[in-house]
Design a protein around this nucleic acid. Structure first.
Length: 952
RNA sequence: GCGGGGGUUGCCAAGUGGUUAAAGGCGCAGGGCUUAGGACCCUGUCACGAAGGUGUUCGCGGGUUCGACUCCCGUCCCCCGCACCA
């Protein structure tokens, strides 16, 4: 080992050795297998600190399991299908200034290099090479023989096979779905294409079809249940309405609504314009109740919201109540309305706690809302809606829906209404306007004849839930999240027109959507090794995949069809049987609701239950100096930059040691510096130990040796358990930082002979985290072979020495107590005398413990004294006993046996020289049982575990 | 709005009924080592203190308990997901 720790040199050397010696290229053997996968990175940029975290956790787990004797398969591939890479190539070709800036500055790509990346293929090649280099530079123990890109021809065959199965299972179906649409670009609008309104979601309104003769006046509402309470409709007299034909029916809607309807999957034809005024005063029929209600004028009706016609439920909607009230004293004869509107009877249909018959009226009064133009009207509306939604129950006048909670009724009722032709669904943005990057206002477009993965299928869902129930989820709190998301998941469009990818085998116009081709690709790793080795892939029909993955058919026949040697076909088949299923998939938390869920969906669809995944571990993100990282806006730290600046081991140690689970790691330069200092200390410590010729490992073990080994066992046990649960931070706390502190104490107390033994275990425990430096130390004389393949230390219970640990505890505590007294008194001592507790106090503590235990933590002082007096050893100290008994009784609930079972006098006497040395003055030890010099009578303060102190 | 997670001592962060004024790290202060600095080692770091003590703390307000950072109720605040996009 060199004098100074040189990360660059060490890391490059070991990475080369691992590769040259094929250290991480597993093949099936008699050992237990462990198959670990991580979502492959998408190739539209360089790997950054966020990837680094997920991948490094995976690598540490792979290394840990390998050292525990498992045969570990840890492969990696690259994702390139979909639209972003195509989009990026266009932007680069056009020298888009923003992209140029981001890729040169944040991703660190030289200008000349970047300008050459003007096709998707070149981008894929470039970032694939960069990503692989990055992963190698940080020392991942990946089996690179299995790498692939999702645009590889053989991979496409694999995807086609998979979709063939899903089609046969009827899990791929045709349907329509609403998307954000730019009428100018004639394209769906993605998140990053939105100029304004990026938070807008698509909401489904119920469109209730009120009738006026042969005409339909549809009203959009989010509360279809209130159709029972409609007293009138609202129309804006100053708005232009349109008479049009919609799916053969004659509809009246606002002009704006008409425009929107043309983008839906309805067939729509313009009829004529009609002003709101003409319609006001007429009557319409409530489709559900059959009641006739009038159309009244209201200024609050927004033609751009819904159909521009609003149904009025004054009992439950403050706006409706206010608008109606405003009309009470108005002259409406211009609309031909002469009846007294006060005669309109409000219909109450929801019972909710805290409200009487007319919640809208109560809310308006409560908030003192003046009229429909009062801003507080909005507040009142929200208030009523919230309370009724969460606590409301439908009343008897809702017929068969009576008694059902409002929160449960919407979907049921809407489905019923649609079935009876009384309603339709109308999509609307949750906030408007939504503006495309080109400046055009977006609409909601119904994409027709789209291919869907039917994730809503109840049987499919229940299989996923069953799979989840049998899986280990880390952290366990995420299980609820997964279950909720399964529940929430709807059908997903799985085909696109643009981008890279595999065509749907039965409908070549469509490309399989890029999340849908990344679901069971872990199985493909087994194949990829053979593809990369030059296997013939011209013909890979379903029979090939079915034999390999599903054990159907036979090798000879598959060999015949494909032209692949039978032995190879059989070998792939056997490999798969050995490696599958996936033992754990670790991933960032952003993939829970999509990728990880689809991963489960497709596994349960394609594979039999014994091949379903076993575990998922989810981890958080990485931020930079407290700021969220952004691939497009910065700040961004690439993996390669982190390694170039700090070295692989320091980067790994920092990122694994600073957070775990779903908490985010904050990358801070001062913290990284501190980590580097720790790393150097580790290296120097190891170097010194290895160079120390005075270590006699065969010498009899002293107390401090036994203490050190005892602590080591605890650290090993803790680290092992932590790693089994993917808790890298906890593992490192134990295996690195706390063990380091133990070693400092060991050396300070004169320990030496176990240093090599401890170092051996320590280096092996650190190997999954900082593999390069561990190889370096290991090779400098600790063991044969590679630290990466050495055996993970096992905690030996026989080496746990409670007495040694208690003795050191006592010593440490005593040192601290003396120190405290010295600090307070600011005195310079001449001599220190310690008195250990008398036997009778120990006896009494024992009695108290027994009694407290027997009485569930309660201790009766009288009873204790009685018992004590019956014990001759205590009875001899009649004068002091009650005081101590009282103290014990007071602390009855938290008494500890910690202080028993150790001969304190013997312990401290043995350490007399050490204590004297530590304080620089003579130290005397007496037992309170013996008569020693005790001028101030301090010995009476001695208690078990806490010697009395006298300082002169 | 719905769903999930969280608020701990200067900072990061462990801690789920008593062993907790609360691990560990960082920062800071003092001491040692050193020609000096850095690194390293030791000590301290909620307040006060008269010999190892006392007091006040774990978002806020209540409650349960002999005892709460830990359990229950309420409340405020923060983060993440809500899709056809990887």
């Amino acid at each position: 080992m060199k004098e100074n720790y040189s990360a660059k040199e060490i890391e490059a050397r070991w990475q080369k050795t691992w590769e040259d010696e094929a250290v991480f290229q597993p093949e099936p053997d008699s050992r237990e297998k462990f198959f670990l996968t991580i979502p492959y990175p998408y190739l539209n940029g360089n790997l950054h600190a966020g990837h680094t975290r997920t991948f490094t956790i995976g690598d540490a787990v792979a290394r840990f399991q390998r050292m525990r004797g498992k045969n570990v398969l840890f492969p990696m591939a690259f994702h390139a299908t979909g639209t972003p890479i195509v989009g990026l190539s266009e932007l680069i070709a056009n020298r888009d200034p923003l992209i140029w800036d981001v890729y040169t500055k944040l991703h660190g790509i030289p200008e000349a290099e970047l300008s050459s990346l003007n096709t998707p293929e070149k981008i894929v090649l470039y970032f694939r090479r960069e990503a692989k280099r990055a992963m190698q530079s940080i020392g991942y123990s990946i089996d690179w023989r299995r790498e692939f890109t999702t645009t590889d021809p053989a991979y496409s065959k694999f995807i086609e096979w998979q979709y063939g199965i899903l089609r046969r299972l009827d899990y791929v179906v045709k349907g329509s779905h609403p998307v954000r649409w730019c009428p100018h670009d004639k394209n769906p609008v993605e998140d990053h294409d939105i100029l304004k309104g990026e938070d807008a979601t698509i909401m489904d309104f119920a469109l209730i079809k009120f009738r006026m003769g042969d005409k339909v006046l549809p009203c959009a509402t989010l509360r279809p249940e209130t159709v029972f309470g409609v007293t009138n409709l609202w129309l804006n007299p100053d708005v232009d309405y349109v008479l049009c034909t919609v799916n053969g029916e004659s509809w009246v809607v606002s002009k704006e609504a008409y425009e929107k309807l043309t983008f839906t999957d309805r067939s729509v034809a313009f009829g004529s314009e009609i002003s709101g005024r003409e319609l006001i005063g007429k009557k319409v029929t409530n489709p559900l109740t059959g009641t006739e209600v009038p159309i009244l004028p209201a200024a609050f009706v927004d033609p751009d919201n819904g159909s521009g016609i609003v149904m009025s439920v004054p009992a439950h909607a403050p706006y409706d109540y206010l608008a109606l009230k405003d009309l009470y004293d108005k002259d409406l004869t211009e609309y031909g309305i002469t009846e007294d509107l006060r005669q309109i009877k409000f219909i109450s249909l929801i019972q909710s706690p805290g409200y009487g018959e007319l919640p809208a009226v109560e809310a308006v009064n409560e908030l003192n809302v003046a009229d429909q133009n009062d801003p507080k009207a909005e507040e009142a509306t929200k208030m009523v809606y919230r309370r009724e939604f969460h606590n409301g129950v439908l009343k008897a006048n809702t017929g068969k829906y009576a008694g059902i909670a409002v929160s449960k009724i919407k979907d049921v009722l809407l489905a019923d209404l649609i079935e009876q032709g009384m309603a339709e669904i109308f999509y609307e943005f949750s906030e408007t306007p939504v503006i495309c990057r080109c400046g055009t206002r977006c609409v909601i477009m119904m994409v027709r004849d789209q291919w869907f993965l039917e994730y809503s299928d109840p049987e499919w869902k229940s299989n996923v839930l069953r799979c989840l129930a049998g899986m280990k989820i880390i952290p366990e709190e995420f299980r609820t999240e997964f279950i909720n998301k399964v529940d929430w998941l709807k059908d997903k469009a799985c085909a696109r027109r643009k981008g890279l990818g595999t065509h749907l085998p039965w409908d070549k116009e469509w490309l399989i959507e890029s999340l849908g081709d990344s679901t069971i690709y872990m199985a493909y790793y087994i194949l990829a090794k053979y593809v990369n080795a030059g296997m013939k892939i011209d013909s890979l029909p379903p029979e090939f995949f079915e034999y390999i993955f599903m054990d159907k058919g036979d090798a000879a026949r598959v060999a015949g069809i494909t032209g692949i040697p039978e032995t190879t076909v059989r070998q792939i088949h056997d490999d798969f049987a050995y490696w599958y299923p996936v033992d754990i998939r670790t991933s960032g938390k952003d993939l829970v609701a999509n990728h990880l869920l689809f991963f489960l969906y497709h596994h349960v669809a394609v594979f039999p239950e014994r091949l379903w995944p076993k575990a998922i571990a989810v981890n958080g993100f990485v931020s930079l100096e407290g700021q969220k990282m952004s691939k497009s806006k910065g700040p961004l730290l690439t993996l390669r930059q982190a390694v170039a600046d700090n070295g692989a081991d320091v980067t790994r140690l920092y990122i694994l040691g600073n957070a775990e689970g779903t908490a985010d790691v904050d990358w801070r330069n001062d913290g990284v510096e501190a980590t580097r200092a720790h790393m150097e200390r580790f290296y120097n410590f190891a170097r010194e130990v290895l160079a120390d010729g005075s270590i006699d490992a065969s010498a009899d073990k002293s107390l401090i040796d036994r203490w050190m080994l005892s602590r080591l066992q605890r650290r090993i046990a803790e680290a092992t358990e932590a790693m089994e649960n993917i808790q890298t931070r906890r593992a490192l706390q134990s295996a690195f930082y706390l063990l380091f502190n133990d070693l400092r104490w060991y050396q300070r107390r004169g320990g030496r002979n176990q240093l090599r033994a401890v170092l051996s275990a320590w280096v092996r425990m650190m190997s999954p985290f900082t593999p390069h430096v561990c190889e370096e130390i290991w090779a400098a004389g600790l063991g044969e072979g590679y630290a990466s393949l050495a055996e993970w230390p096992a905690a030996d219970a026989a080496l746990v020495d409670e007495r040694a640990e208690k003795a050191e505890d006592l010593l440490e505590r005593t040192l601290k107590d003396v120190q405290e007294i010295l600090t307070i008194t600011k005195s310079t001592p001449a001599k220190i005398t310690l008195y250990t507790a008398p036997a009778w106090k120990k006896e009494m503590l024992r009695l108290a413990l027994d009694s407290a235990q027997a009485n569930l933590g309660k201790l009766d002082m009288g009873a204790l004294m009685k018992q004590a007096m019956a014990t001759p050893a205590i009875a001899a100290h009649k004068k002091d006993a009650p005081k101590y008994a009282q103290k014990l009784a007071k602390a009855a609930h938290s008494l500890s046996a910690e202080a028993l079972g150790l001969d304190e006098f013997e312990t401290l006497t043995r350490e007399k020289a050490y204590l004297a040395d530590a304080f620089g003055v003579p130290v005397e030890i007496f037992s309170a049982d013996e008569a020693g010099e005790d001028p101030k009578g301090k010995s009476r303060q001695a208690e078990p575990g806490r010697p009395a102190i006298y300082i002169e």
